[in-house]
Nucleic acid binder design. Structure first.
Lengths: 250, 250
DNA sequence: CGGGACGTTGACGCCCGTCAAGACATGTGG
DNA sequence: CCACATGTCTTGACGGGCGTCAACGTCCCG
């Protein structure tokens, strides 16, 4: 065991790291991959299902096969912070340590299929196979820098910047997966989830999208899908800049 | 080498983890401790000195011996987010990887004495001594959960809650170190640093402290030091609650 | 003693949270 | 197939918390 953290942690696949993780997964020897995929059992969940609850003892590790999962923390009065969304190949409950509790709650945002491992089995694999250990440690390091970037965003960026950054991240993630430029982004989560991810309210998310729509930057209409009409202006919105004939304003 | 993260990271000693880290340090075999302390060179810095700059190639690892260091990220327009403060035994530039750049800027908040290692020397120690590796990995895990807690704070807590949480964390850290209850906290950093740590402005920090002072919860006056007159009310302020004869209100 | 950095306090305004009503989609039972 | 309930998104009205700008006070160090 390499780690003695006090809480289990989630390995989320952020937009900018999705390719890194998948290449790292594929770099594993196929025999190791087989051992990894061995002895997992698959579960299927409907949207809204709880997966793990903050404070519960961390007996299992999960991997997302399909669907979207949200990871969040709660304040006693119900205020919620979604610390990340998990997509395919995202892991929940990785701690490198056996006697821990989950440090967050995880919930299915859409219908999901998950692989489940009993923790001891995967822990043994960590001990025996340095490559697997390295895989998860690298992910954890990525996760930490992503968390620091998100602090800057939550503390300092305006609602418009946050929503634009989110749309661009989702778009980049999907473009990476499909390997091509796209003109519309799937947004499977509810506005309330996005709001809790961005530190806003659902109303503000909605209003901000309406503003971007009225400015001709995006297109709304089909549920769960947002068209992107003007990438450079969306990028400007994310940067907090406005562009008019070559000049940049703030 | 265990990690292939894209950026160097800081191991800060947060209030709740200071004792954990120090006990972990002391748990190291003394011969290993000697090797760790070996071949480090000490540097002395005045307040405001830059230590590392985001984007520079990460050639050195630093340990804080005395003083306070701030770790921050910048937005192009100058908006700043202090992601953490480092005190004694805090590390800067740990990556478990050789060809990296620093992912943040570090600066001396007060006069500081730092130990400096050339990165290869410490990297070798990581490879050779699992206990050292485990030490840093555990710290990284703590760091990640601390980052997630701070997200919740930055996104959801009011100015008063943030300032109260900060004061309590500083007080707990100092009480831990001195091993006794205290009635005043040293606050060596400028309000501007605190503001950038809490996602506020210096004016709001000042105003919030004035409110707590007027409510008789804290005492101000001596520069760099804040007296704490009523711990339970300060705790209530941190929780976002108000207590009146046993009843809790929000 | 004088200058500069830092903290305090006030005035003002805006962004975004809150509350509320309405539109729209989806599912369920009759 | 329709009536209705339920959950979600949209839009408006309003207010408050905190950012911004500015003036002043205070401390420190030359």
């Amino acid at each position: 065991m390499e780690l003695r953290g006090d809480t289990a942690m989630a390995i989320s696949i952020d937009s900018n790291t999705v390719s890194a993780f998948q290449s790292r997964l594929q770099a594993l020897d196929s025999s190791i991959l087989a051992r990894l995929n061995d002895k997992s059992r698959a579960v299927s969940l409907i949207e809204g299902s709880p997966i793990v609850v903050e404070g519960d003892s961390a007996t299992s590790i999960y991997r997302v096969r399909s669907g979207v999962v949200s990871i969040f923390k709660l304040l006693p009065d119900g205020r919620r912070q979604v610390t990340g969304f998990l997509y395919s190949d995202g892991f929940i409950g990785v701690t490198f340590n056996m006697e821990d509790v989950y440090g967050y709650t995880a919930e299915a945002v859409t219908r999901c299929i998950l692989d489940v491992w009993p923790r001891p089995a995967l822990d043994r694999l960590f001990d025996e196979v340095p490559a697997v250990r390295r895989l998860f440690l690298a992910e954890m390091a990525d996760e930490l820098t992503a968390a620091q970037d998100r602090m800057l965003m939550l503390a300092r960026r305006s609602a418009e910047e946050r929503v634009a950054v989110f749309l661009l991240a989702m778009a980049r993630r999907q473009a990476d997966i499909e390997g091509r430029r796209l003109d519309a982004v799937d947004i499977p989560m509810r506005w309330a989830d996005i709001a809790d991810y961005l530190g806003l309210t659902p109303e503000t998310v909605s209003r901000t999208l309406s503003v971007l729509r009225d400015r001709g930057i995006i297109q709304t209409g089909q549920r769960g899908r947002i068209g992107i009409l003007n990438w450079s202006e969306l990028q400007s919105a994310a940067d907090g800049t406005r562009v008019r004939n070559g000049e940049i304003y703030r």
